[in-house]
């Protein structure tokens, strides 16, 4: 079954003879010099380079406040903010609030995460699980968790429960989706290799499927934590009597922009801490991966 192809030669192509190329004068040749990675480039430590952006931003903010470009009713300057933070730390208010908010986030994440991961493992490993769980989850995930706040309040009242439930709902889905995809996308050639090694089903899951799904699972964790924070901020707007959200609500009523900024910074710091944790987890558990580290 062979077919004959008709070859058409474009007019320009005929003129491109090797002779033309070899005759190219030296100075017309585009050259690139490959620079070695110099040690000089790394004399400034990485963390310092990363820090320079935020420091510059704070400096700008400070200058704007000092010169009156940014009035304190709109946004308190960094010095005022630091002063209020010191006061809040002194009387213990900030620590208490942080602890409460953090424990809310962790409780929600623990509940939502366990549900998400469990469902993903069931759906990922068992055909029956897939049929029963996956379609339902794919349908439910389209509902934004925040839109459920009214229902949650009706179901759980206005105490801790709706806040934690909101965070749990928000975090379950990203973990579910990523762990499930991770399990389903494990390299099939490795599964086959495992079969030729006579791995039992449980050994296959332990040594091949779950480690293969781990990178994706950690991506899910990262998303989940991001959402946990968002959900925390929303949740703490529900009639909080303690926590960072409560601190913020009180400050709003008294037009204390400095305290609001302190709370924002605390949210950001908590977020950074969580991000750092995930990075560390990735470094430990994904050490085997040929990761792109950039330059």
């Amino acid at each position: 079954m062979s077919s004959i192809a008709t070859i058409t030669i474009a007019p320009g192509a005929v003129e491109r003879r090797p002779a033309d190329q070899t005759a190219k004068p030296d100075d017309l040749l585009a050259r690139q010099r490959i620079e070695p990675v110099s040690t000089a480039r790394h004399r400034v430590p990485r963390w310092l380079r990363r820090l320079s952006g935020p420091v510059l931003l704070v400096l700008l903010w400070h200058v704007a406040s000092q010169t009156g470009v940014l009035p304190s009713e709109v946004l308190a300057g960094p010095t005022t903010v630091i002063g209020s933070a010191a006061k809040l730390v002194d009387n213990g208010e900030l620590q208490d609030a942080m602890l409460i908010s953090l424990s809310r986030a962790l409780a929600g994440l623990a509940i939502g995460g366990s549900i998400g991961v469990t469902l993903a493992v069931v759906a990922g490993l068992f055909r029956l699980g897939e049929d029963m769980v996956d379609a339902t989850m794919q349908m439910l995930r389209t509902v934004p968790a925040v839109a459920l706040i009214p229902l949650l309040i009706i179901w759980f009242g206005i105490g801790e429960a709706p806040k934690i439930a909101l965070i749990a709902l928000g975090t379950a889905f990203p973990l579910y989706l990523n762990v499930y995809a991770g399990i389903r996308n494990v390299d099939s050639t490795l599964i086959e290799a495992g079969r030729t090694l006579d791995l039992s089903r449980s050994a296959m899951i332990r040594h091949v499927v779950l480690p293969g799904a781990l990178p994706s699972a950690l991506v899910g964790l990262r998303y989940s934590l991001g959402i946990a924070w968002l959900a925390l901020v929303f949740g703490e707007q529900i009639n909080a009597t303690a926590g960072i959200g409560y601190l913020m609500a009180t400050a709003r009523e008294m037009f204390q922009t400095d305290v609001i900024v302190v709370c924002l910074v605390v949210y950001a710091l908590l977020g950074l801490g969580v991000d750092f944790t995930v990075r560390t987890l990735e470094r430990v558990f994904l050490a085997w991966r040929p990761a792109f580290s950039g330059t």
Binding site: E192, A193, G194, T196, D198, H207, P211, L214, W288, R289
Partner: peptide, 21 residues
């Protein structure tokens, strides 16, 4: 079996790959 691609488990050190299973 040894395949055309080595098909080692990337998350296991070389020696653990050898005795896997």
């Amino acid at each position: 079996v040894a395949f055309q691609a080595p098909r080692l488990m990337p998350w296991k050190k070389v020696w653990r790959n050898v005795v896997l299973g």
